[in-house]
Every structure is written in C-alpha cells, then in structure tokens.
Amino acid sequence: MARPLLEVQELKKTFPARGGRQLRAVDGVSFTIERGETLGLVGESGCGKSTTGRTIVRLYQPSAGRVLFDGEEVHSLHGSALRRFRRRVQMIFQDPLASLDPRMTVGDTIAEGMQIHHMGTPKERQERVQALLRAVGLNPEHASRFPHEFSGGQRQRIGIARALAVQPELIVADEPISALDVSIQAQIVNLLERLQQEMGLTYLFIAHDLSMVKHISTHVGVMYLGALVEIAPTDQLYSEPLHPYTQALLSAAPLPDPKVTRTRPRVVVQGEVPSPIDLPSGCRFRTRCPFAMDICSQVDPPLIEVAPQRQVACHLHAARSTAA
C-alpha cells in the first residue's frame, strides 16, 4: 500500500500554565489518514482536538512527536518546501465570521491564496474566484461584497472556497459546522462530501459531537483530555463502541426515534473533566469511568489494536489485543 497522506506520530503539545506548570493539550496522539479518506476527530471542548488540527497545519509547533505529510516532516519544512506544504494543506475554521477578514471583499479573500502562491494572472484568478463561488453554491456576483453581508452558512461556504482556491490535497476542518443551524449543517456536510468526490480531497474533520461526523467520516477517532482513546472505521465504532467514553458519548447523542431512545442502555459518566494541567494517574478517564478497576489508577492504558483497524486505549480490552 502507498504511504498514507498524513501520519501523526506521538504528537504532543503543551502550553505553559500559571506557576510554571504545563497544560498538556495534546498528549501523545498518533493516527494516519489515507488519501481520499475522512477521519472524524471527536471529543468534548478542551480535549485538544483543535490543537491537534492546528499543529498539523503548522500554526503551532509540536512539543514532541512528528507530523508527516506525504512522507515529509511538516515541522522541519522551510523555504519552497514549506510554501508547497502551505498550498497542499488548508484549513476550514469554526467561526465563519471570524475567519473572514472584515475589511476585504469576498473575492479578495478567496483570491489571496492564489496570489500568495502566484497562481495565474489577475484575470485568471478572478475567473477562478467566480468558478469557486459557483462551486460552493454562491452567486459569482457576490465577489465584490463583504463578509458581514452574508449568512452563517454562506460565510462558511466562502471559507471553503478560500481553502479550495489553492487546490489543496488535505483539508483540516476545525468544527466547520458547529456554529451553524442544524438545517445548514447538512448543507455544508453535503457540500464537503461532493467536493471530496470531485476533487479527491482528504479530510480531517473535527467535531464535538459523534452524530456530526457519522455521515462524512470513513474513520472516527475519539479524543479525551488530549489523548486518543479509540479509533475505528465509522460503522464499527457506531455499532460496537469499545471504550466506555465512546459508549457514553454515543448514548448521549439524541436519536430520531423516541422509543429507541427510551429503551437503549445508557452509559452515564459522572463528574467533570479533570484539568489538563493536573491529569489523573493511570488512565485519564478513570475518574469518570463507570467500569474503573484498580489497575486503571496505576497504568495508563496504551492505544492497542484489538481488531484490524480498531484501536482502543482501555484495560477492559487489553486481553483482546491482537498482539497478546
């Protein structure tokens, strides 16, 4: 098999906190994304999923670990190799208004990347802006307008057009639909899916809700307090979640059928998320886990492969390890 498009190895990112302590935002995350696939990265606020995304696109320097994009180490790139990386990897942001410069027209915003990478003449760029606006379902005449004149869904489509303008291969979408109405969310997900098929894009799709990524992802990774606790192909993760945290997340997601909702077993998580400055000993989820055992407070369970393509970090499943 060809090398994966994106490979994240033991990525760590700490931020300095008060009193000389360290906030461990991302604490040893590893995963790979194959070309053309979509990895959905899910977790509650503050679990480090956005930090992971921003480190991958090199907005942050990692504290440890490596990110390989198409076999090249992202954080040691410079000069023309860095420029190439900047073109091949793009990001879509959460807040559709904050991610657009309020003083620039939509056309200028979309053309900015092409200008930076010297793609085409000004006239060609203008034509491409029009084509991109059409591709994301906006009126090409809107190129001369300003971001504040658009609705949330329209703004997010402008952000998508900006990312697409430089013909990227990987798009890191950082909660692209969380700030939108439910009716608009489907519209954006469908648009992203269509664009993926047309342009052969690879996505890292970050969300805080499992129901948001189910439709679009080929694989789903669940993060808790800076670590990946489970990663699996989408169908398997939803039909047979292994980690207690995944089970809790799934049983908290609303289902369209109230009968099913009433009768399904629920995994209830107690308490609050511990502080990422002061992580619990052993397994980071044990303070809230309904199945916590003695070993959980002593040994941090590694992410192990329990079935082909299925990895989980939990002592409950240590016996199932394919390696053991």
Binding site: R54, V57, L59, L82, R83, R86, R87, V89, Q90, M91, F93, Q94, D95, A98, S99, L100, D101, P102, R103, M104, E112, G113, I116, H117, G159, R162, V166
Partner: peptide
C-alpha cells in the same frame, strides 16, 4: 489569534503580508 489571520497564515502569507494586509487595516 483571530481565525482570519490564522487562515492567511495557513495560506502561506508572510509576516509582512499579515501585518499590512490584515492587522493594520483592521486597526485603522
């Protein structure tokens, strides 16, 4: 740390471009 500045950085904008295209006009 606004997302539109990060977006420009992700597009590969140089520090000078960030300052003169995005930061100063928004401080005007």
């Amino acid at each position: 740390n606004q997302e539109f500045v990060l977006a420009a950085e992700t597009l590969g904008a140089s520090p000078a471009a960030l300052i003169f295209r995005h930061l100063i006009p928004n401080t005007m």
